[in-house]
């Protein structure tokens, strides 16, 4: 027992001594960031209380929070969150399930790439959000067409990042595994997958924002519930607090997804952060 504890502690000590982290700097930048945000909110509140007080066009932080609590207690928010959450989840998961294999096959199979590349390039360049009204005409205003709009917004980031990730797999590392007698399958699981995963997760993170825009726009073209619908509805009746609550919640969904994916990346590829820091940090150790 004690022996293992001792070695574990020793290792930790060795590691910290060898790779001293820039903790103080990181904490300081977080504190500064929080202060900046707080100052902005206070300024907004003061400006509202001093110069505006009542408005059909703008609200204040305290009012938004109060509105949020009221809507939450009255139970009005849940259906909206639920509807948007479902649209987002279906569309996003679909784009991951479709995007990763597509990107992978495009990167590894020249023929597939020949056929698919023009489509991906053309659709990527299209402002796909402008297809939303068409999708609604074709498939109605149900969950399916909204998820499809989310999917269209998100999937290309995942395809392209998977493609770049697989293409960027380091040839010399593949050779290492081959040199030690690794089979093709072993090369795939022991080099290609781990080397490409950071890029793929980065693609998934970029796709979150696009997916959320998809949710909002899809709901503008006909919906009876959802955060995008809520934003649209309350802006039509000049209730800015409710509008901003909706936007805030959309932001929160995006932020939480983004954050969870970052944690996922750190959990699956803890080495990636170290590599980036080392490469950015350059020579000073």
């Amino acid at each position: 027992m004690t022996a293992t504890e001792v070695t574990a502690a020793g290792k930790r000590a060795a590691r910290e001594e060898f790779a001293p982290e820039a903790r103080p700097g990181r904490v300081r930048s977080q504190v500064l960031g929080a202060l900046s945000l707080a100052a902005g909110l206070v300024a907004w509140q003061l400006a509202y209380d001093l110069f505006i007080q009542r408005s059909l066009f703008i609200s204040s932080p305290t009012k938004i929070v109060a509105t949020f609590w009221r809507l939450l207690k009255e139970g009005e928010l849940y259906p909206h969150i639920w509807a948007s959450g479902a649209e987002f989840a279906y569309g996003y998961v679909l784009s991951v399930v479709v995007g990763i294999p597509l990107g992978f096959f495009m990167a590894t199979n020249r023929k597939i790439n020949h056929y698919l590349d023009p489509w991906v390039a053309a659709l990527y360049a299209t402002p796909r959000i402008a297809l939303a009204p068409l999708v609604v005409i074709w498939f109605g205003i149900g969950l399916f067409s909204k998820s499809l709009i989310v999917f269209l917004g998100a999937v290309f980031y995942i395809i392209l990042n998977t493609y770049t990730g697989i293409r960027g797999v380091r040839e010399n590392l593949i050779e290492v595994v081959k040199a030690f007698g690794g089979s093709r399958i072993q090369v795939f699981f022991k080099v290609m997958v781990p080397d490409a995963i950071p890029a793929i997760i980065t693609g998934m993170r970029l796709a979150v924002g696009r997916g959320i825009i998809g949710v909002v726009v899809a709901e503008w073209f006909g919906a009876t519930a959802g955060l995008g619908y809520m934003v649209y509805y309350y802006s039509q009746v000049f209730q800015p607090s409710e509008v901003l609550v909706g936007i805030g919640l959309l932001t929160a969904i995006g932020y939480v997804s983004f954050y969870l994916l970052e944690r996922l990346q750190q959990w699956i590829s803890p080495w990636y952060q170290i590599q980036i820091e080392r490469e950015l940090g350059g020579t000073h150790e």
Partner: peptide, 12 residues
């Protein structure tokens, strides 16, 4: 010895 758990980028 003692560096078993280090990642390559943490080494000289």
């Amino acid at each position: 010895k003692g560096f078993e758990d280090h990642y390559p980028y943490e080494l000289s």
